[in-house]
Computed example of a mutant assay.
Amino acid sequence: MKRFSSLSLVLAALACGLSPLAQAITPAEQLAGYTAQAGAPAQPTRGQQLFTTQHGKKWSCSSCHTATPTVDGKHASTGKVIAPLAPAFNPERFADTAKTEKWFRRNCKDVMGRECTPAEKSDVLAWLLTLKR
């Protein structure tokens, strides 16, 4: 019985730890999270402006993702093809919180020289969600 109890605890712990990874998240759910963290509603027009403007570095988000990220982009220095960023044109975008955070962190540092704020993330994502087929 003790053996069964220990095994049950281990399996329960694993299930709890893995369940968030197994759950799909939608771009709208991620937007709601960033908006809550920002404490203010997202502003899509501000997101588009942030996306297309250079910020202290020589790049903008649109340098690689194009000004209308509904088509493939290309990395500005490596030339690597980048799939569309807008979720309506690429359902894999913003479907995994860890990936979203990884790429926001990396790309914001490349473009702005710092991490993006939750408000900036919510604004950009809100704008990307306005781009429809």
Rank of each mutant, 00 (worst) to 15 (best):
K2I: 13
R3V: 09
F4G: 04
L7V: 15
L9R: 15
L9K: 15
L9E: 13
V10I: 15
L11E: 09
L11Y: 09
Q23R: 15
A24E: 10
A24V: 10
I25Y: 12
T35F: 01
A40K: 15
A40V: 07
P41R: 04
A42T: 03
A42D: 06
A42Q: 03
A42G: 02
P44V: 09
L50V: 08
T52R: 14
P69S: 04
P69D: 05
G73Q: 08
H75S: 11
G79Y: 05
G79R: 07
K80A: 14
V81E: 10
I82F: 12
A83R: 14
P84L: 09
L85T: 08
A86D: 02
P87M: 02
A88S: 10
N90S: 05
N90T: 04
P91W: 02
E92L: 13
R93A: 13
F94E: 01
T97H: 10
T97N: 09
T100V: 11
W103V: 05
C108D: 06
K109R: 14
D110Y: 10
D110K: 15
V111C: 05
R114Y: 01
C116T: 06
P118M: 00
A119I: 09
E120M: 08
E120I: 06
K121H: 03
S122P: 03
D123Q: 07
D123C: 04
V124G: 02
V124K: 07
L125W: 00
L131W: 04
K132W: 01
